[in-house]
């Protein structure tokens, strides 16, 4: 299963699915602010540990799945921080010389400190966002954003894009199977050619589909804006307070430590 599908499946089927998205959003937002504001790796590490524990222990996302999901941003992060740590031509700790071109490679001490902070902060921010993404379906996050007065145009785009991601995943999968069954991916050359036509066809299909969708919306009275009825959620003062205390605590920690 691809990443968007996996995230989505858990958003609909976790223990905290039916909590008010405002409560989960508040905690996630405060934790995100805490991770970004953290001045020490310790504070950022606490944010990460706390949000990961809530996601795995509280919302009951399986630990292995969670770790798998972390691998993707972790890969990007490691590639990013490497440039902070490694320098060429001069630095604190000599590592050696690149054979052939005679360029010496160094590790930077300040770079190491910086890199570890950036790494833990980013992981904290990822954990804060994953908490919301894994416990709350996209449609409810959009509902929350509407209550926060995000412009309607943006929300409409989000609703359409989110729905179409799954429509196009499906179409792309079907096209790929159809190509593969006619040896479209039998050699590397074939593979590149097949992938290129798949992309081009997907674009045409997207265009055609947008026209069909527009037509069907017009049939149901679409004029200028896409409107629908938001659902009502149970409100819990206790949960909201808990979210504020935990999130606020993390933010205070990162500002102080």
């Amino acid at each position: 299963m691809g990443l968007p599908v996996l995230l989505d499946a858990y958003a609909y089927g976790n223990r905290w699915r039916y909590l008010n998205p405002a409560e989960k959003g508040l905690l996630s937002g405060l934790a995100l602010a805490a991770a970004l504001a953290a001045r020490s790796p310790l504070a950022a590490g606490v944010v990460f540990a706390c949000m990961a524990a809530l996601t795995v222990g509280g919302a009951r996302i399986p630990l292995l799945t969670y770790l798998r999901l972390l691998l993707l941003p972790a890969g990007f992060l490691l590639a990013g921080v490497a440039s902070l740590v490694v320098s060429f031509g001069g630095g604190d700790i000599p590592l050696g010389t690149l054979p052939g071109i005679g360029l010496s490679v160094f590790l930077s001490e300040t770079g190491l400190v910086q890199a570890s902070l950036v790494l833990v902060r980013s992981l904290g921010a990822v954990a804060a966002l994953y908490f919301l993404a894994l416990t709350t379906p996209m449609t409810e996050i959009i509902g929350l954003l509407r209550r926060l007065r995000v412009p309607a145009l943006m929300l409409e785009l989000m609703v359409l894009a989110y729905r179409q991601v799954f429509v196009f995943l499906q179409i792309a999968r079907e096209m790929r199977v159809a190509q593969a069954s006619r040896l479209g991916y039998a050699t590397t050359g074939n593979g590149f050619r097949s992938l290129a036509t798949l992309g081009a066809n997907l674009y045409l299909r997207a265009h055609h589909r947008s026209q069909l969708l527009h037509r069907s919306l017009v049939c149901r009275g679409y004029e200028d804006d896409l409107r629908w009825l938001e659902r009502d959620y149970p409100r819990s003062t206790r949960n909201l307070l808990l979210a504020a205390v935990v999130g606020g605590g993390l933010l205070a920690l990162s500002l102080l430590v």
Binding site: P137, T139, V159, R209, L212, L213, R220, E223, W228
Partner: peptide, 26 residues
């Protein structure tokens, strides 16, 4: 009312309640 052939070209929202509410809201 018109129901089109391909449901994926008609359902705009990932929440069917929201999708069904579209017409009455309009």
């Amino acid at each position: 009312g018109v129901v089109f052939q391909d449901p994926d070209a008609q359902l705009f929202s990932a929440s069917i309640r929201e999708d069904i509410s579209f017409g009455p809201v309009n």
